[in-house]
């Protein structure tokens, strides 16, 4: 008969389970109530949240079908699925920002059906909890939005990733009402207030930053470490930075070699803004040095991208 282990030792074992295999912890919790108490205890959860969250999978948009989940660590699969007409914009700490689209057909047989986003939804795929966010009451022609934990935007401490899926959130909405006017605006929705704040004085001109095309906003990259969110503009030939603390929107240029190339915005190793560019046959990763603001350094070049 093997020796019984004291609770503190069991906690040490369970806390070291591979983070990308969450099923192991669930099965362990079903062994007995004492183990269930250990894994659901505040101390244990704080410990788990102290380390880098694992990537359990991603949602993939495929034509007109609802987004499908692709697990990177089987057998994990969220218990609830996105619905038809949902466009997943962004995810933060287990919650998703979804744009619900509706296709309206005119009674005229000659009119083409038009699709428009009627609502934003903050969705938790593990509980199916849905929090509807109305579209902002402003005129916009192109836009993008990002989900943020309200705690992350508040003072220095930031978000401790503890119980984020239940906490209050912010939606940062970046838009332009005329893609040729060269101005952008940002406004923030707060779940605590249940309303959109007045757009801050954030109009910015992008001339002189190499942005020769229209201002179409792309998906956001959320970075909370330096309290900023980045949105790619047009073909990512320029980048919009929204500073959560100062509520300020500004345009920054890409790395010097990026113009006219298709680049991908990403989070760099240090947590700041990064760019990935394919320069055959290499994948070049650039990271933006916070201290140098406008300066970029080529971080790494990997062969065989």
């Amino acid at each position: 008969m093997p020796p019984q282990l004291p609770d503190d030792v069991v906690e040490e074992i369970l806390a070291r389970f591979p983070p990308d295999e969450p099923a192991l912890l669930v099965r362990a919790a079903l062994a007995c109530k004492a183990w269930h108490r250990i894994v659901s205890g505040a101390g244990f959860r704080r410990r788990l949240h102290g380390r880098a969250p694992p990537l359990l999978g991603f949602f993939h948009h495929n034509g007109s079908h609802p987004p499908s989940f692709n697990p990177t660590s089987p057998p994990f699969r969220p218990p609830y699925s996105p619905r038809a007409g949902w466009l997943i914009l962004n995810a933060r700490h287990g919650r998703f920002l979804v744009a619900r689209k509706m296709t309206t057909t005119s009674t005229s047989p000659f009119a083409t059906p038009s699709t428009e986003v009627v609502e934003l939804i903050v969705w938790d795929p593990t509980t199916d909890e849905q929090h509807g966010v109305p579209m902002p009451p402003f005129k916009y022609s192109t836009w993008s939005a990002a989900l943020i934990c309200a705690a992350a935007a508040a003072a220095a401490g930031g978000c401790d990733h503890f119980d984020c899926p239940k906490g209050p959130f912010l939606v940062v909405f970046v838009f332009t009402d005329n893609i040729y006017k060269g101005t952008m605006s940002a406004c923030v929705y707060s779940s605590e207030q249940g309303s959109w704040r007045v757009p801050t004085c954030t109009h910015c001109h992008c001339q002189g930053h190499g942005c020769r095309h229209s201002l179409r906003v792309r998906g956001p990259i959320v970075l909370v470490k330096n309290n900023a969110i980045y949105f790619g503009c047009d073909k990512n030939t320029s980048v919009l930075e929204y500073d959560l603390g100062r509520q300020k929107l500004s345009m920054i240029g890409p790395p010097p070699v990026c113009y006219c190339q298709d680049v991908v915005l990403m989070t760099a190793d240090g947590g700041g803004l990064g760019f990935a560019i394919v320069e055959n046959p290499k994948l070049c990763l650039w990271s933006r040095e916070a201290a140098l603001r406008e300066a970029f350094t080529a971080e790494e070049a990997r062969a065989g991208a």
Partner: peptide, 21 residues
């Protein structure tokens, strides 16, 4: 944790000598 991979809660109880409550 490697020993616990693929084990059912019943098998985990056996390995750790714990009673199902």
């Amino acid at each position: 944790s490697e020993m616990m991979k693929g084990k059912s809660p019943d098998q985990i109880r056996e390995v750790f000598n714990i009673k199902n409550d």
